[in-house]
Amino acid sequence: MSVGAVLKAKIAAQVVSVEPSATVLEIAEIISSRRIGAVLVLDDHGGVAGIVSERDVVKALAAHTDKVVTMRADDLMTHNVTTATAQTTIVEAMELMDHGYFRHLPVVNDGKVEGIISIRDLVKYRIMEHERDADDMKAYIGRMV
């Protein structure tokens, strides 16, 4: 299965993003109120300029306690963001996340953001697949009896 299938199955497929000038406090409010783990930072063309995770906010608070309120997204975002496409397999996406030690993966097509998936989305989708397979097997065995 592909990342595109995971995006289609997501209930809330809206991409939450900020501009590079967004303050850390604005980002913290968005992450908290939306109950999400990261926001994308988009460039002027709608492409991924960076990503700010809740971990980034906590690290900034710990390292820059006195000036964290004046920091912006472009001060603490990850700049070289690993991305996937809708055709990326779930296994490939999980390997990217595991190798890079991150939990959110933007999905991009021709430089434009299509969505973002989390490790939780991938695990949830895999569980649904296994449950569907088990139900199919039960139905098949039931027909044979």
Rank of each mutant, 00 (worst) to 15 (best):
A49H: 12
A22H: 15
T78S: 14
S2Y: 06
M71G: 08
T82F: 04
H45E: 14
V113Q: 10
S2C: 02
D135T: 07
A22L: 15
G46E: 13
K10D: 14
I31M: 09
Q87V: 01
S53Q: 15
R132K: 13
G46Y: 09
P20I: 03
A13G: 15
V81Q: 07
M128E: 14
K10A: 12
L7D: 10
V6N: 00
R143F: 03
H130Y: 04
D136T: 10
H130E: 12
K138A: 14
F102S: 02
R55C: 09
Y101S: 15
Y140C: 00
V91D: 07
Q14N: 03
T70S: 07
D74P: 00
D56Y: 11
D66M: 08
S21I: 05
V48P: 04
G4W: 03
I11P: 01
A134H: 05
H104K: 06
N80Y: 13
E29M: 06
D136S: 13
G47F: 09
I90F: 09
M97N: 08
Q87C: 01
A62I: 06
R55W: 06
S21H: 09
K59Q: 10
L61D: 01
T65S: 13
E19A: 13
P20K: 04
A28F: 04
D98E: 13
I31R: 08
S21Q: 13
L96R: 02
A49S: 15
G115K: 10
F102P: 02
G50P: 07
V69P: 07
A60R: 07
I127A: 00
I116W: 01
F102I: 04
V108A: 04
S21A: 14
V113T: 06
L42R: 08
T78M: 11
V68I: 14
Q87A: 12
V39W: 03
D75W: 05
G50E: 11
A9M: 09
L25W: 14
L25I: 15
N109H: 09
I11V: 11
S53M: 13
V3H: 03
A22F: 14
K59W: 08
E92D: 14
N80F: 13
M77R: 05
E95T: 00
A5N: 10
Y101D: 15
D56R: 12
M128H: 09
D135I: 07
I90S: 08
M94C: 09
D133E: 08
H99G: 03
I36V: 11
V15P: 02
V3Y: 03
K112N: 03
M144Q: 02
I36M: 09
E114I: 02
R55N: 03
A12D: 15
H64S: 11
